[in-house]
Design a protein around this nucleic acid. Structure first.
Lengths: 202, 202
DNA sequence: CCATTTAGATGATGATCGTCATCATAAATT
DNA sequence: AATTTATGATGACGATCATCATCTAAATGG
């Protein structure tokens, strides 16, 4: 049942894409190759025609998940925010609005890798950690643009990213919806505050 | 080989304590009962004399890990900080100094549960999530005290906690030490900024 | 002091895991 | 057209997992 070169490449791509989704739904150790491959429409046997190991796939899927995150940040940044306190950058407010809402929190698959399996990434193999590091660099780079080369733009971008990931992670843990919403609000407020600091030169 | 009541209680306690450490080192799915019990100085067989399931132990160990976190926060809050920018609460600066240092980041076992297995907690069973939620409530309550009933004390305490967890999680992922240190610095700066806002009524 | 209960060791259970050998088949190459 | 190559299915491998049955010896309760 050999497939054409083009179709083989498409299959490989489909596995990575499927893994990227599955990881964000179930985490690294919660994702098995069996489940993964059948989700991609195949049996488990073909896996090693495309990858050397599960770890190699995880690294690639992590990178792919970061790409998706970047796209979401870009799309969010160019939207008009639900609410934008005076002095806050509209782009940052819109990004906070996108990632720190109950709807985004309750989504399983569209979630960002760092929220979905961030604590597992700290224990992952070198290649995966590297993919995550580079993804994080790019994400922070995007946020940095929102500060228009201002003073401490990079520092502030990192702070915003930490608030996004911290708030998102905690909100997903909490089993009390009101408390969880409070966390989202606090993180959103924090990000707007950082943005205001930048425009006011605080 | 039956043991006395007191010793049985001590054994059970030792298992929970061991699990609390193991969880913070290896995460939830990275911790097996085999490994756990032998770490506690026993074979795996005796486990079910003390617990109904692995999940039940995880929930208790999570609660215990939160207790340890609370103790660390309390101890940190009453220390004098390495550096304390003008207007920043010394307690908050000291807490940031404790949790956002390279030394704390590089420790395996003493780490806080939300950093160590926060993303796994979001997918854990109801009892574990509840234990985590209550632990988080208490941690935020402690931080809230640092704001002395000021305006939005609770909101700010949540923001500080999100910055701690977000910063700590990201710093542990990154494989570039300089970048990781940068993340710790940014999160620390953020927390000092929140503290200053409170004293200045910003 | 005897009968009962039980903590913890040993070892088996079935399920699931990552990985690999084999095979049929169809694309690629000659 | 003949030969080689490689995809993906089938199924097995050994390891590991949570859980449980059984056995022991010691603590408990009468």
């Amino acid at each position: 049942m050999r497939k054409s070169k083009a179709e083989t490449a498409r299959t490989r791509n489909r596995i990575v894409e499927t893994a990227s989704d599955a990881l964000r739904r179930n985490g690294i150790s919660g994702t098995s190759l069996h489940e993964l491959m059948s989700e991609a429409g195949m049996t488990h046997g073909g896996f090693y025609r495309h990858f050397d190991s599960k770890e190699q796939l995880i690294a690639e899927a992590c990178s792919r998940g970061c790409d998706a995150l970047l796209d979401t940040i870009r799309a969010a940044g160019s939207r008009s925010p639900d609410a934008c306190p005076a002095g806050t950058s509209p782009g940052l407010a819109a990004i906070a609005d996108t990632f720190l809402t109950p709807e985004y929190r309750d989504e399983d698959a569209a979630c960002c890798p760092f929220v979905s399996f961030g604590s597992e990434l700290a224990r992952a193999d070198a290649a995966t950690r590297h993919a995550a590091t580079e993804g994080m660099r790019r994400a922070i780079g995007l946020l940095e643009q929102e500060f228009h080369d201002g003073d401490m733009a990079r520092m502030r971008a990192i702070a915003v990213f930490a608030a996004l990931i911290g708030g998102g992670t905690l909100a997903r843990i909490v089993d009390d919806p009101a408390f969880s919403d409070e966390i989202l609000q606090a993180a959103k407020m924090l990000i707007c505050r950082i943005s205001r600091d930048a425009t006011e030169g605080g």
